[in-house]
Write a protein that binds this DNA or RNA. Structure first.
Lengths: 228, 228
DNA sequence: CATCAGATTATGTCTAGACATAATAATCTG
DNA sequence: CAGATTATTATGTCTAGACATAATCTGATG
C-alpha cells in the first residue's frame, strides 16, 4: 500500500471514502479499516482521517463506536437540513417587496406559556399579496419589554430576534385546512390546504414564544441532502 | 480573567462561547476575540478553540472569514435538521404494526427521468389504517434490475435502499388538496389537506428516482433546533 | 456455565508548532 | 489621487505524538 495518490486535505479523504461507499467497495454494514490503517494508506496523519470520518459520521453516513470501529451506516438516515429564514429575508430573496401589517395585539394567556402572554397576529406580504399569517404568543414574564412594543412597524418575528435569544426550539410542519379567518387573510378559499409551521422556542427552561405560521397555498419548503 | 475554570474539551469551550452570546456579552454582529486570544484565555491550544468555533460556524451561530475574524451572526439562521426515516421505521417507532400493499406497477416514462421508467404505487399501513401513499418512478436505465422486482413483498422504499445508492437528493414539503384517488386510498375526504413530501435523488448526474409521499391527514413532521 | 476483573484496542480529543490561504491594510508608483 | 503591489494577519488545515475513554475481548474464578 503506499503509492497512494496523495490525497490532500481531509475533504479529499472524505470524498474518497464516500466514493468507496457509493461504489459498494465498502457495502452498508461493513466495518471499514481503522484510522491508523487509513492514515497510512492515504499518507497523512491520523487526525486528518479522524476529521474526515467524524464529519461523515455527523452526516449519518458512518456509524462509529469506540473499540468497535467504524461501519457504513445500514440505513443512510437522510438528514435534511432545513434553513428557517427570516420571513422578510425569504420574501426579498424571491425578488418581491416585503410588506407587513399588524392585525391584532392583545394580552391574555397561552397554554404553553407560564404567566401572562402577549398575543400578536400579523400578516406578511410579498408584493402586496399575502404571503404568510403569523399568530404569535410571547411570554410577558420572560420578555416583559414586549409590553412596550406596539409591533406596528416591526414584526414580532424580527423584534424577538433583536431582543431575545433562545437556546433551543421545536418545529413541526403540517398541512391544515384553512379556517375561515385564515382563508380570508391569505386570500384563499376556506378549507384550502395550508402549509403550517408551528414553532416553540425556549431560553433554557423558560418558554419564550409560540408561533404558528400559515403560508399561502402553493408554498413549499425545499431542502437538499447529500449535496457535496 | 485567569482563574478560568479550566474549560476541558472543545465542547466546553463551545458552551462558554454560546453562553457569552446568549448573555449578550458578545452581541450579534460583534467581532469576537481571535483564536489565539481565546486559546490563551481558556488555557488551551488554538486548535481546540478552532474546533469549537468551527462547529458553531457550521451551526450558523458564528460567521468566520479569514483575516476579517469571527463575528456573531446577525441572523441566527435557524438550521433545523429533519431526519427522513424509513417509512417502516417511522411506523414501528409509533408502536404500530407495519403493513404494505402494492397498488400498481407499470412501465412508462417520467418527465424528470431519462429513458424508460418504472412506476410503482403503494400504500403503507400503520395498524391496518393507511398511513402514507407512495407514488414512485424509478429510472430503468440507471437501475435496470428493478425490472426483476415485483415490489409485492418489499416496498420500493426499502428495495432501493438495498440496491441503489445516491449521492445527492432534493426534498420539498408542501400541503396539497387530496385528489379523489389519494383521498380514497388514505381514507380521507377529497380536498382534505395532505402533507406531501416530494423527493428526487441522483447518483452523480444520473437521476435515480422521483417519489411523492402523501401522508394521512393529521401527519406532522417534527424537528428540533439548537438542541444542545 | 456464568460472572467479573483486567488487557486490549479503536476512537475521541488535546497539544505545540508549522505552513497555506485569503482578505484586509499599508505602501509604493504613475 | 487612483491603482497596483506588498505586508500583515486571522482563519484553515496538517503533523506527530500523547493521553483519555469506552467497548470489546480474554481469561480467571466461583
Amino acid at each position: 500500500m503506499s503509492a497512494a495518490p496523495q490525497f490532500t486535505g481531509w475533504q479529499a479523504i472524505q470524498a474518497e471514502v464516500l466514493r468507496r461507499i457509493h461504489a459498494r467497495e465498502w457495502p452498508p454494514g461493513q466495518t471499514i479499516p481503522g484510522e491508523v490503517a487509513l492514515a497510512q494508506e492515504f499518507g497523512c496523519a491520523r487526525a486528518t482521517v479522524n476529521r474526515a470520518l467524524q464529519a461523515l459520521a455527523e452526516a449519518g453516513v458512518l456509524e462509529r463506536r469506540r473499540k468497535a470501529g467504524t461501519r457504513v451506516a445500514l440505513h443512510p438516515v437522510s438528514k435534511a437540513t432545513v434553513t428557517i429564514p427570516l420571513i422578510r429575508q425569504e420574501i426579498e430573496e424571491r425578488g418581491a417587496a416585503y410588506g407587513y401589517r399588524l392585525l391584532r395585539r392583545q394580552e391574555g394567556t397561552h397554554a404553553m406559556l407560564t404567566g401572562p402572554a402577549l398575543h400578536v397576529t400579523a400578516l406578511h406580504f410579498a408584493d402586496d399579496t399575502p404571503f404568510v399569517l403569523e399568530a404569535r404568543h410571547i411570554s410577558l414574564s420572560v420578555i416583559p419589554q414586549a409590553r412596550n412594543e406596539t409591533f406596528h412597524e416591526i414584526s414580532a418575528n424580527e423584534w424577538l430576534l433583536r431582543n431575545a435569544s433562545y437556546t433551543s426550539g421545536d418545529i413541526t410542519f403540517s398541512a391544515q385546512a384553512a379556517s375561515a379567518e385564515v382563508a380570508q387573510h391569505l386570500g384563499a378559499e376556506t378549507g384550502a390546504p395550508i402549509f403550517v409551521m408551528d414553532r416553540m422556542t425556549w431560553d433554557g427552561e423558560a418558554a419564550i414564544t409560540a408561533v404558528r405560521l400559515s403560508y399561502v397555498p402553493g408554498y413549499r419548503i425545499r431542502t437538499v441532502i447529500g449535496g457535496s
